[in-house]
Structures are given as C-alpha cells and as structure tokens.
Design a protein around this nucleic acid. Structure first.
Lengths: 320, 320
DNA sequence: AATCTTTCTACGGAATTCCGTAATCAAGTC
DNA sequence: GACTTGATTACGGAATTCCGTAGAAAGATT
C-alpha cells in the first residue's frame, strides 16, 4: 500500500491525454476530482498533481474517507481544541491546517456522510476552518483533490450527495480508465513492478503467462496487478510460467474463452468474419437487454454505446 | 437419399432471391450451374428447375459423376451399341438420349476426368451424341443442369477443368448458400423433416435443443440435418431434449462457446461493447493470417472480406 | 391532476467503414 | 529479359455506422 514510489507508468493514449490535461490546469489551484474504480491509481495521480504544481514545496496530505465515523472524521480534518474531543488530550491540528499552502487529497469522497459534506462545503466556501470546540476561524489555503469510485452526479440526483459541494469539487474532473480499458499498459506495469519487488533478479515471462495477464479483467485494477506480481516475485526465480499465475488469472479469463471460441468458429465452424461478428453482436445486445431487464437506456450505457447507436443496432438485428 | 419429395423449404432471403432468379431464366433452355457445398440441396434445385420449366413433361435424368471410371461414365452418358462395351450384352441408350426433350442433371461435375470433359463439350457444341461403338450421331435436345462443390473458375485456372466447357456450363450460375449461412431456415426445415419422418406423431423441441440445432455449423448441410432428424425421430416420442441430440451437435458447437464466452466478457469481465467486438475482430484477423500463413489475399477470402476491407482492418488494429 | 423524471422514438449530418479499381511489386516461367 | 501470375499497396467515393438533439410517451412524485 506504500505509494511513495511516484511513478506513473503508462504509454496508453487515454492516459497520456489525461496527463496532458492535468499539466494544463495544475497551477490553477482549481479543485480536481478524480473518478475511477478502486485500484486505478487515483492516489498516485493526486500526489503527482501536487508534486508538479507550484505548491510542491508545501505539504501533501491524504486521507481516506471511507467508513469513518463522523466525529472522528471531523476531528481529523479540522482538528480540535484542548479537551474538546472525548478523551483527546491536548489540542490537535486538523489535516486542513497541516496542508496549509499545499494540497489535501480526500479519497473516497463518495463515502462521506451528509453532515460532513456540509462542513466541507463551508470550508471550501469560506477558505477557513474552525477547530472542533474552537471559536475563531483559521484561514487555510489548500488545493483540494478528491477521488470518487462512482459518478458523483448520480449520487447528487439520488439526493445522497450535496449538489453545491459537488460543484465545488468537480471543477476539473478526470475519468481514470480502468486497467482493462488500457490493456496495453499491463506489460510495462508488470515490468515495472517486477523491478520494484526484485531489483536484483532478472525475471522473464512466458508468452502464455503474459497473454493471460493481458486478458484477465483485473477487477482490482493496478492495485490487484501489483499484489499479484508481488506474490509471484516471492517464489519465482527465472521465468514466470502460466502455472505460476493465481487461480483467477488462469481460469477466470473471459477473453481467453472468447478468443478460443472465436478461433473455433473460424476454423471448425467455417464461419465468415461477418457471421461471427454479427452473431456475437446480436448475442451481446440481447444479453445486455436481459441484464437490464429490458431497459434500453441502461443496456446502452452498460455496453458503452450511445442510446441511438444501441437502438440502431437493435433495429439492424431485428431485436424486439 | 431419396429426394422424390420436391419441396424447397426456405424462408431465407438469399434463397428466395435465387428462386426468383431461377424463375426468370427457367424457360430459356440455358445451361445452369449450381455451386454449393455437399448437402445444400443442389439435386432438389435441379429437379425444381426441370419441373417448373416447359420441359417438365419430358424426362429428368440425373447422375453423379464423382469417382466413376472413365469408361463406365462414357457408356452411361452416351450409351453404346451392341457388343461394343466389354461384357455388356445388348445395345444401351445413354442418359443424354433418355433425357431427350427434357433435362439432364450432372452432379459433381468438378470430379469429371479431363477426357470426359472433352466428350461432354463435343455434345454440347454439336447438340448430338455418338454412342460408344456407334457410327452415326444422334441429335439430342436436353437442358443441361450441372452442380459443383467448388468454384470451377479455380479449377480452370489450375488447368484441371477445360475453360471452354466451363463457359458452356456456366451460362447461368447459382451460388447456393450453405445451411450455416442461412440459419433462419433451420427451424422450418426441422419441422418439415419431422413431419416427413413421423407424419403421425406430434413431436416438439425444447428451446435448448433448438438453440443447439441452430448454432451447430452443419458441415453436411441440409443432408446432415435430415439424417439427424431421421435418427432422432426413430426413438423420440413427445419432445426432443438437448440430451437426445447427437454428440457432435451437443458438443462441437462453436457458436455456443462463443456466445457463452461473450456473456462472460460482458458480465464477469465488465467489458464494453467496443472492447469485446474489437478484441474479437483483432483476434480473428490474426487467426486468419496465421491460418493462411501470412497471405493477406487468402486470409481476406477465407473471412469473406474484400482484400481492401481486410487491409483497412489490419491497419485499424495495427497488425503487422 | 400537475409536474418532474425517465425512457423511448425519430431524424439528420459527421465520421467511419467498405470495396472496386488500378498501380506497384515479387516471383516464377519461357 | 520479356511475360505471366499472384500478392501487396494506395486511393476515392458509395454505403453504413455513430451519436447528438429534441420531441413524444410513460412512469413517478407530489
């Protein structure tokens, strides 16, 4: 979990584009919202933004907001005066104060209880904090970087997240793609982690193993990949074979299945390109509709298609 | 093998188009070439053409030309005079003579040895035949219908088939699509064969079994389907279950694999439409290239794509 | 019942895909 | 070395796909 190693490994086009965008806004002090699944490396992005910004000489403070009792959270963020907090001895600086002049990174902002949201909003609007039990406001100057696993807009429309806070936070949003959306990054990442865990050993990877790595869906994204490489690097010596991979990478590999089936269709089934593709698309559309129990809008969204495109395809394939 | 039952079961668009074309040329007496895999029903088409033509009152004669010794073939086609053919007693009319005024159907024309090709050509050009051992030519008026499993043009360019005979034969060519290219015909065909083999019993089919029928590649086309239904109809009483299907239909079913893998990708792999399709296309292109050992033209042909399209895709996916 | 949200449907133009044509290249063949 | 044959490139326009927009319909919410 130690992310001191601040290296953003990525040759991927999408990622490069994001880094490019970041460099354009990095010195503007505007709040950045990082959106992406767990493990995509949102912390690393946050730290990266801090480091290349003109605040880099001041503090970078980070805190995960998930599953924290409301009171503790408030105390952490805003600090407290002597004796004001139960069983807390002396006074304590809050993270906002510590980050003064620098940046604060609030991870899992989507898990923040409503009540803290309100307090956060107050800080952002007034640019000053009030310690718990304190009386006079302390001005703070911090760059806010937040991270969310889900689309906050959704939470807003469901009433779980304050709209005004959302607008404060969402000044510069970045959608970090999941690892499976940028599989070309997998090989360089593996290489990087191998070097990181075993700087001395020279470890290679068989084609078969690499193929499995590339095709595995990585629900835990880069974090999961890192853990897997860590584990493997402990016992493998010269070469990583397919058999060395964790069970799930070996077996829960939908793409491997797909590609094998695809070849079967071509070689055994004597099917043409169009037949195979159409067959697959047809099935996929139907499956998506089934999963969304008939809701076209959702099916389209899940497939990553615009509703129009989705419907065009439904028509093309004569699906209900 | 008895094809007396002259029913062309097909709701398929491509097939209807062919039937449509046939009706336009049926009375023109021009030679028809039927091209298609074994079992697609070329004999039925031939008989159909004869029956709806203005020659229907005269004879329809058919003969399979595959694997026939040259001499026997000649005797069959052209007949022979008394004692001229080894151990053949009396004189014998050839099929061309018998078909006089009607139609003759030569199946598997692609298997005809070169020497007979020459004789055939002579008949077609002169419109008269010479019995073996005979001296005076007998004028014949027949409509020629031929069938081939492969593209005769290929055989011509390989020097195996006479170009001039090809042009005589190929006046009106029809490409009959394989069963797997018109899967919508499978259910009505099954129904038809069931009625045919068990006119009394009312046999139903479970969805699962029907799905397997539809997705099986049917390398033997309609003939294979007919045989399978025949076999099944012998022991099944009320309903055809998945378990009743022959081994190959149950297991050698590339499409079933593909669809399952596809769903896995969507549900477990969390993949988007584009990702799945692209992944599949990429793989398919590479596989086709591998199978054709790098020959792009062949790979394209096997995939049923134009070379240009194939190359566009190669570029799109950055393949070599 | 009135309003707000969500989903469905239809349309038109931008972007991409598809494929015929033709030029170029690479090997045989004579 | 000229010729033939088959494969690889390159190009441009027809056909299709893709998606934003915006109005209609169907549910929700009050």
């Amino acid at each position: 979990m130690n992310t001191t190693n601040l290296t953003l490994i990525s040759k991927n086009q999408q990622m490069r584009e994001i880094l490019n965008q970041i460099s354009k806004v990095v010195d503007s002090d505007s709040s950045v919202l990082l959106i992406g699944e767990t493990g995509v490396g949102k912390e690393i992005f946050a730290e990266y933004i801090h480091k290349i910004s003109n605040r880099s000489l001041n503090a970078f403070v980070k805190i995960g907001l998930a599953a924290m009792p409301s009171e503790l959270l408030a105390s952490e963020l805003f600090g407290h005066e002597k004796g004001s907090f139960t069983s807390a001895a002396g006074e304590k600086k809050g993270l906002f104060e510590i980050a003064n002049g620098g940046s604060i990174f609030l991870d899992d902002i989507d898990d923040v209880p409503f009540e803290i949201q309100t307090k956060l909003l107050r800080v952002l609007e007034s640019k000053e904090i009030m310690r718990i039990g304190g009386t006079n406001p302390i001005p703070v100057d911090v760059r806010l970087i937040t991270a969310s696993k889900v689309d906050l807009k959704e939470l807003v429309s469901r009433g779980i997240f304050r709209a005004d806070l959302f607008y404060r936070i969402n000044v510069v949003p970045f959608q970090i793609p999941s690892l499976r959306e940028r599989r070309d990054d997998i090989p360089p990442l593996i290489e990087h982690f191998l070097k990181m865990f075993q700087p001395n050993k020279k470890i290679e990877i068989t084609n078969e193993a690499m193929k499995a790595f590339v095709n595995y869906p990585w629900p835990g994204n880069v974090r999961e990949l890192k853990n897997v490489i860590n584990r493997i690097s402990l016992f493998v010596s010269g070469k990583i074979n397919f058999d060395d991979l964790p069970f799930e990478v070996q077996n829960e590999n939908p793409i491997e299945f797909l590609l094998k089936a695809c070849n079967k269709c071509y070689v055994d089934g004597n099917m043409k390109f169009d037949q195979i593709v159409k067959c697959l698309e047809h099935n996929l559309l139907k499956e998506a509709l089934k999963v969304s129990s008939g809701n076209q809008s959702n099916a389209a969204k899940n497939l990553g298609l615009s509703l129009s495109t989705f419907r065009d395809k439904l028509k093309k394939y004569n699906i209900v």
